[in-house]
Computed example of a mutant assay.
Amino acid sequence: MTSSSLPPGFYPSYDTCHEVSQFCPVQATTLGYFPNQGVNIFVAVGYGLAAVVTIVVGVWKRTWGFSAAVAAGCILECVGYVGRALLATNPWNGAAFKMQIVAIILGPTLVCIGLYLTLKHAVTALNRSLSRLPPRVYPLMFVPADVSCLVVQAIGGGIAAAAGNGDGALLDHGNRTIMAGIVLQVLVLGAFGGLAGDYLVRAGRFFGGPAVGAEHRAGAALWVDRKFRAFRWAMGLAYAALLVRCIYRIAEMAGGWGNEIMQDEPSFVVLESFMVLIASVLLAAFAPGIFFPQMSHSYPREVREDESKTESDSTGVQMERV
């Protein structure tokens, strides 16, 4: 096709271009580059393995809510990076572009739910009187808030995917909607981190004190347990990785689609791909069913009832479990 044979008003977009050519250069795509296929295949496989491990351990140890959320997030991430691997061979593959937009935006939000579910059970198993909120409030507060972030980002991702690269106004609407969802997610993560950090500091002071009552012997034993200590560190690092990713996403989306940050693959790989992958691997490798069995529905019922009765006698409040 020569310049004279181009239709009037031709503009390279995912609707008008089907492969890289003189009139459909890779620079005109939203990403502006050929994604590194090897890196994206590696990341997709990593998410796939994390999903499989999470599902297997989740079924084995019966950590239903945690495992369902984390596995679903990992599966979405895997799908998204398969889409990016396909873009490596054809950056004008509109279906792959839409697939990676929606999946990679939504995946981390589901992974975050796994984190939110751990706080209630940690408070319940350690010492609920140290918490500024009743344990049952944590999932009731953070899970719906996280789902709201998911819905807002899904709407934005859908709008952006529908716009492709040809409708600038629609892309801007999708961008602003996604931005709103990500900012909300950062606020939710910040609030969760503040409450979780506050509780852990208070718990550390309490269990490190000179006198821990008999009613808290189970919590004291759990606090110094090496597996639970590893679990705390893993959850903390996963939280930090997810927070870094969300802050990066705000910077990436702030300049609109196709901005310099969005078209810089190394920053995307480090601050998006690997941050969420690190969080997902940590949640899979340090699964609560193994490292924090009190969160598992397979935890012996008689032990739960004994711990519940002990703390109930000292606080007058029945332990709760979902």
Results as ranks from 00 to 15, higher is better:
Met1Ala: 12
Ser3Cys: 01
Pro7Gly: 02
Pro8Asp: 03
Tyr14Val: 09
Thr16Asp: 01
Val20Ile: 07
Ser21Phe: 08
Phe23Asp: 15
Cys24Lys: 04
Val26Leu: 05
Val26Met: 03
Thr30Val: 15
Tyr33Ala: 13
Ile41Phe: 14
Ala44Ile: 05
Tyr47Asn: 11
Tyr47Ile: 06
Gly48Phe: 07
Val52Leu: 15
Thr54Tyr: 01
Ile55Glu: 02
Val59Ala: 13
Trp60Phe: 08
Arg62Asn: 11
Thr63Val: 15
Gly65Thr: 02
Phe66Ser: 00
Gly73Pro: 10
Gly73Thr: 01
Ile75Lys: 06
Tyr81Ser: 02
Val82Gln: 04
Gly83Leu: 14
Arg84Asp: 09
Leu86Ser: 02
Asn90Leu: 06
Asn90Tyr: 06
Asn93His: 12
Phe97Pro: 00
Phe97Ser: 04
Ile101Gln: 13
Ile104Ser: 15
Thr109Phe: 10
Leu110Tyr: 08
Cys112Ala: 09
Gly114Asn: 11
Thr118Ile: 00
Asn127Met: 02
Arg128Met: 04
Ser129Thr: 14
Ser129His: 06
Leu130Asn: 02
Leu130Gln: 03
Leu130Cys: 06
Leu133Lys: 15
Tyr138Gly: 04
Pro139Lys: 14
Leu140Ile: 01
Leu140Phe: 04
Met141Ala: 12
Phe142Trp: 05
Phe142Asn: 06
Asp146Tyr: 00
Leu150Gly: 03
Val152Gln: 08
Ala154Thr: 07
Ile155Pro: 02
Gly157Glu: 08
Gly157Lys: 08
Gly157Asp: 10
Ile159Ala: 03
Ala161Gly: 14
Ala161Pro: 06
Ala162Glu: 12
Gly166Asp: 03
Ala169Pro: 00
Ile178Asp: 05
Met179Val: 07
Met179His: 08
Ile182Thr: 13
Ile182Lys: 00
Leu184Tyr: 03
Leu184Pro: 06
Val186Trp: 03
Val188Gln: 09
Val188Leu: 08
Gly190Ala: 04
Gly190Val: 07
Gly194Ser: 07
Leu195Gln: 05
Ala196Cys: 12
Gly197Cys: 10
Gly197Thr: 12
Tyr199Gly: 10
Val201Gln: 13
Arg202Pro: 04
Gly204Cys: 04
Arg205Gln: 14
Gly208Lys: 04
Gly208Thr: 02
Val212Asn: 08
Val212Leu: 11
Gly213Asn: 07
Ala214Thr: 12
Ala214Met: 05
Arg217Thr: 10
Arg226Gln: 12
Lys227Ile: 02
Leu237Lys: 01
Leu237Gln: 02
Ala238Val: 00
Tyr239Ser: 06
Cys246Thr: 12
Ile247Pro: 09
Ile247Cys: 15
Tyr248Ala: 11
Ala251Ser: 13
Glu252Cys: 10
Glu252Asn: 08
Met253Phe: 14
Gly256Cys: 11
Trp257Asn: 04
Asn259Lys: 11
Met262Ala: 11
Asp264Lys: 12
Glu265Pro: 05
Val281Pro: 07
Leu282Pro: 09
Ala284Asp: 05
Ala285Trp: 03
Ala287Asn: 12
Ala287Lys: 00
Ala287Gln: 15
Pro288His: 10
Phe292Glu: 10
Phe292Ala: 13
His297Pro: 01
Ser298Arg: 14
Val303Lys: 13
Val303Leu: 14
Glu307Gln: 11
Glu307Asn: 11
Glu307Asp: 15
Glu311Tyr: 10
Glu311Arg: 14
Ser312Cys: 06
Ser312Lys: 13
Asp313Gln: 12
Thr315Pro: 10
Gln318Leu: 07
Gln318Ala: 13
Met319Gln: 13
